[in-house]
């Protein structure tokens, strides 16, 4: 139960993503390695609680980005993102 209610947006974890990226990536365009859909990171679905952040593709539900704090390190698995296009000035 509660899984639907626990679902948030990538936007909600923008602060945690700033621990990893040097810029705010919520307005960056991410391409899903699974289905090829392009979404803004802020529009991805977030299921992270406790251990870290998990962002899934709203189209095919594949895990796109995982950020976990464990063993004195921040571990980033971005294998579900084939391309991340970050707006620059």
């Amino acid at each position: 139960m509660q899984t639907e209610e626990m679902r948030l947006d990538g936007n909600a974890v923008a602060g945690s993503l700033l621990d990893v990226f040097a810029v705010d990536v919520t307005a960056a365009l991410a391409t899903c390695a699974g289905c090829g859909a392009e979404r803004l990171v802020g529009a991805l679905l977030e299921y992270g609680h406790g251990m870290g952040v998990v962002l899934r593709c709203p189209g095919c539900d594949a895990v796109m980005l995982r950020v976990v704090r464990a063993g004195g390190s921040v571990r980033v698995d971005a294998s579900g993102v084939s391309l991340l296009a970050i707006p620059s000035d």
């Binding site: 936007n11 990536v25 919520t26 307005a27 990171v41």
Partner: peptide, 9 residues
């Protein structure tokens, strides 16, 4: 606190 945060909404 830390912020402001968020470039999507």
């Amino acid at each position: 606190v830390r912020g402001p945060i968020g470039g999507y909404f």
